[in-house]
Amino acid sequence: MKFKALTAIAALMVAAPALTFADPDDDTLVIEGQEMVTKTDLPAHMEDANMDMIMSGWHFRSDETQALQMDDFDNPGMIFVDQALDNWESVEGSAGKSCASCHEGPESLAGVRATYPKWNEDAGEVRTIAMQVNSCRTENMGAEPYKYDSTQMAAMEALITLQSRGMPVDVAIDGPAAETWEKGQEIYYTRYGQLELSCASCHEENYGNMIRADHLSQGQINGFPTYRLKNAKLNTVHGRFKGCVRDTRAETFSPGSPEFVALELYVASRGNGLSVEGPSVRN
């Protein structure tokens, strides 16, 4: 009897904070002295969405997790940036080149993360950073491509993303990118799987709410690649998409598939105006 009462009290203590703090917080994200835009007005294309503002997923995490992203020495994602820097300078492939051979320092790619996925005129398609990295590797270096959502690719994306840290996300959705963007929008609102959940079911209609211990965010991707405490690795956008669709009890799509490229462009555009934060830290 005593045990039951104690259990009940413990359950209340556990449950109460989760419910009290279910709403996103009002903290300010400053990384290495640089203040990030983590809340801002809806992009024009989202005026029909039932939302007041767009918000970084950082606001939905605990103070402890938030703090890990505010100092590069605490951010485990930065370890992968160092690894990618080694790869950046490593000669690979038949052409005897490294990334540095053409691009010099990674800082030459400042602004890239903010505008990708992006229409590539020569290729006649919308390309993600990962596609562009592999295009460089196979066509310019004569090297093997990285697996799309491999650790090496995630690390290289983190290095490239870091060069745009603090810049506003600004992906183009019009012109030649429009068709891909519309396809991505359609996927975003499609209720997949046996649970019949769309991206919007959780991340537009229910952000701020709890699904058991999971605090639903807006599903913004301005913090990717993301170091997750849950799996202790750097996670790519497509890796996260794959897991989300799988969790609707659906036949999911593959990282690098045309569906996920389109979805990435669309979801990125829902964050137009937020700061590039990657590599971020989430739970």
Binding site: Y192, Q194, K242, T248, R249
Partner: peptide, 23 residues
């Protein structure tokens, strides 16, 4: 958003439980 607990048809890309594979 509530799932249907006793229904077997009309789904988009139904999967084999949480494997990510097709039903």
């Amino acid at each position: 958003v509530m799932p249907s607990y006793y229904r077997v048809d009309g789904f988009v890309r139904p999967g084999n439980a949480y494997t990510g594979k097709a039903a």
